[in-house]
């Protein structure tokens, strides 16, 4: 393994929806500026786990987490942590593109405005930078005031990535970000992930095995709330250690 710093680390994470034990004793460490893919059958807990990294599950009644999530070595579940501050450091992109029914520009600067930024020039600069990073700038630069809803699905998803990047997080969580997109848009998102990892630590949930293979450095396979295996993506796809991993990735599950 390389000498990169550990950016995110889960220690003995258990999570419950009421009585249901959704995540069971999970330990995993992710190095900074790498892409980690979460794979596993539907309902195994990938999204639940992903959302633990920015405390998105806090909203759910009856949800309970035990264990620690260390972001740059600090536990994000510690009492003194402000969730708002956390969200600035950990951005998230969802499965379905979900732009607000506002202009493209307003979508990108939304988070910054909430944070209290009001300087027009600074906002415009941040918007341009984020749209560049999301590889959308060239397609929208002449229509920044157009409604975001008029964009194609693939463009909307990149807009949502731009929105997440605008607040300058250092971690980007993506829950099946390309599952609703056509192959060309998917390829663009994947290309984008490759570029973004120079600056961001990325965690992506995907049901597309080839996508996991193409974009990630390490892959974690989850099964029924357990982390079965986490290793270099190359290893997982050529020579996984666990029979369950092999059965899953070769499509011979169950």
């Amino acid at each position: 393994m390389s000498k990169k710093q550990i950016k995110l680390e889960a220690r003995d994470i258990n999570a419950y929806y009421g009585d249901f034990h959704a995540l069971k004793g999970i330990n995993v460490a992710m190095e900074e500026k790498t892409v980690t893919a979460f794979i596993g059958p539907s309902g195994c807990g990938k999204s639940t786990f992903l959302r633990i990294f920015n405390r998105m599950n806090d909203y759910i009644d009856g949800f309970k987490t035990e264990g620690e999530i260390l972001l740059d070595g600090e536990n994000i579940y510690a009492k003194n942590v402000l969730v708002d501050e956390l969200r600035k450091r950990v951005g998230m992109v969802f499965q379905k593109p979900n732009p607000f029914p506002k202009s493209i520009y307003e979508n990108v600067v939304y988070g910054l405005k909430i944070q209290g930024m009001s300087n027009k020039a600074a906002l415009a600069e941040a918007a341009e930078k984020a749209l560049h990073q999301a590889a959308l700038w060239n397609e929208v630069k002449d229509n920044l005031n157009k409604s975001a809803l008029a964009l194609s699905g693939g463009q909307q998803q990149r807009l949502c990535i731009a929105r997440a990047l605008a607040i300058s997080p250092s971690v980007l969580l993506m829950d099946e970000p390309a599952s609703a997109l056509d192959p060309i848009s998917t390829a663009k998102i994947e290309e984008l992930i490759h570029q973004l990892k120079e600056q961001y630590t990325i965690v992506i949930v995907t049901h597309n095995m080839q996508q996991a293979g193409r974009v990630s450095d390490t892959t974690a396979f989850f099964y029924m709330g357990e982390l079965v295996e986490h290793a270099k993506t190359k290893t997982i796809f050529t020579n996984p250690k666990d029979k369950r991993t092999e059965d899953y990735i070769t499509g011979r599950f169950g």
Binding site: M209, G213, F237, T238, P240, E246, I249
Partner: peptide
């Protein structure tokens, strides 16, 4: 088929 793991080997 994009074979992986034991299939690929």
């Amino acid at each position: 088929y994009n074979p992986v793991a034991v299939d690929l080997r």
